[in-house]
Amino acid sequence: MDRQRPQAPRIFLLLTIAVIFILYLPIAVMFLNSLLDHGVWTFRWYQAVFVDTYLHESLINTLIVAASSSAISLLLGVGASIAIGKGLFSLRKSLEAFTFLALGLPELVMALSLLTLFYLLRISSSLLTVTLAHITFTVSFVILTVHSRTITLEKYIDEAAMDLGASEWQILRTIILPLLKPACISALLLGLLLSFDDFLITFYTIGVGTDTLPIKLYSEMRFGLTPKLSALSTLMFICTVLLSITMLRTGVIKNIVKK
């Protein structure tokens, strides 16, 4: 059914373009700011960013946390969605309730409750505590994304497979997982996005002496805006753009769009 859908009103297309323009305007200004030194074009701020070894460390920390937390939360979340949607999980109701609780809590409350837990257990703050915290809040988003897909899967496909003698594992491997793949990909992206985007939970659970890039940027921008910070932000932004284009090339987003 690849039939053309009736177009949305033209004015809404204009609105979409206007929103994009407004979203990019500050970023464009930041980019210009990073290239100027008292009105003269220069790359010196970028050089300053590249030689800063503290920033290298923060970058590595950010990557470790984002990659490990989104991968683990994907596994946990997909498992939970299958157990909720397909299996007869005995504690299904409370698992669903936990998911909504995790979604319903603002980051702030989750952050301070985890801080309290780690404090009372005498676990000192480190990248480990940050990763544990990130998994806890991304997993609920993974479940939300994947579960909304599991409930749309038609039951009769499973029943047909079962009638033809497929075991539950075969059904999982050949029917459920392939059908869930697009949802899994968008869930993983969402997980990465949330972990990268996270400042607050990291801020509460990271402790003194360790930094992720957002924490670094936050603490430095309190002392004022400098072209060097603009250069750093621009570089982080460019990484995001490259990542997005790669995703488009590999067809990830296309798959989601096609559903």
Partner: peptide
């Protein structure tokens, strides 16, 4: 499909340890 329900346990335990217990502590 009963066997598939085992996949729910890791997440269940995770939520208990890092969501419910911390909230009770708060």
């Amino acid at each position: 499909m009963k066997k598939l329900s085992v996949f729910g346990w890791p997440t269940y335990i995770w939520f208990c340890a890092f969501l419910i217990v911390p909230l009770i502590l708060v």
